[in-house]
């Protein structure tokens, strides 16, 4: 379509540029607020004239930021790994064999999608409490050890794998588990990686459940720690933005490094 008039193109780019500003400006504002000194923080200046690091030192003094960051990484990686392991096995079984109760299992999986977390939070909270896992990372991870979103996504990916190859490998004497690990996985590893990225990001951003389980910053993922900080120190905006910057940096770094893959992951699997 080369018939576009230059004026129209200009209008279009103007519109898109405006949308870009709306999308990114809050992040920019967070970043510069984190470096503004006390006299500048409440002004509308678009650049810190005398950038300071005091906001960061205060935030790092007040909050165990590294500890919480480590908690976040542990939680996101563990939920991702558990969900991946359980759904690889489940999706493989669903693709590989026809068996009694398969329809029922699909219904169970699809129904889970509709259960809001608020409908299970109280019983799960009591259970985690009685297991003594309150204020514990495992208490956050365990209820998320399985994801129907992951199972159904992998099921969809597995179906694109040619059945003939599976049957040939089976005749050659490769065990069922071997077929999954040695034949299928190496061939769909980009899809598995895509899904892994989404599961990691979901684990990182989880809100309601970690908030119920952790009340102490020491045990909390960074996002929940940040929430505690927001609710306690409402006027230390410079430090708050410094803390928010610290919380965003890992995710933004990952996005910059893996931007293509992340975008592709969401296109391929959508979101939970």
């Amino acid at each position: 379509m080369n018939k576009r008039s230059p004026a129209l193109t200009l209008v279009q780019h103007g519109l898109l540029a405006l949308m870009c500003v709306i999308a990114v400006f809050p992040l920019y504002w967070m970043l510069i607020s984190a470096f503004k000194n006390e006299s500048e923080i409440f002004t509308a200046s678009m650049f810190p004239h005398k950038p300071v690091l005091t906001n960061f030192t205060y935030a790092f003094d007040e909050m165990p930021i590294f500890r919480m960051m480590l908690n976040s990484f542990s939680i996101a990686i563990m939920t991702g790994v558990f969900q991946m392991a359980t759904s690889l096995l489940a999706a493989y079984a669903l693709v590989r064999w026809r068996f009694r109760g398969q329809g029922l299992i699909f219904s169970i999986l699809s129904l889970t999608w509709l259960i809001p977390y608020q409908a299970v939070m109280v019983p799960n909270y009591s259970l985690v409490n009685s297991m003594g896992l309150n204020e514990n990372i495992m208490g956050i991870v365990l209820p998320y050890a399985v994801s129907t979103f992951a199972i159904l996504s992998l099921y969809q990916s597995f179906q694109s794998f040619p059945r003939v190859l599976i049957e040939a490998a089976s005749i050659d004497g490769l065990s069922d588990f071997g077929i999954l690990v040695k034949l299928i996985l190496p061939n769909i590893k980009s899809m598995v990686a895509s899904l892994g990225i989404i599961l990691f990001l979901n684990g990182w951003s989880e809100y309601l459940w970690p908030m119920l389980i952790t009340k102490e910053m020491e045990n909390a993922p960074i996002e929940i720690g940040l929430r505690l900080f927001v609710n306690s120190d409402t006027n230390m905006w410079g430090s708050l933005m410094a803390a928010a910057t610290a919380a965003c940096i890992p995710i933004l770094l990952i996005y910059i490094l893996l931007q293509r893959q992340i975008v592709d992951s969401f296109v391929r699997y959508g979101m939970k």
Binding site: W29, V230, A244, I251
Partner: peptide, 9 residues
């Protein structure tokens, strides 16, 4: 971005 960071900003 995670919801808490977004909320804080």
């Amino acid at each position: 971005l995670a919801p808490v960071s977004v909320g804080a900003i």
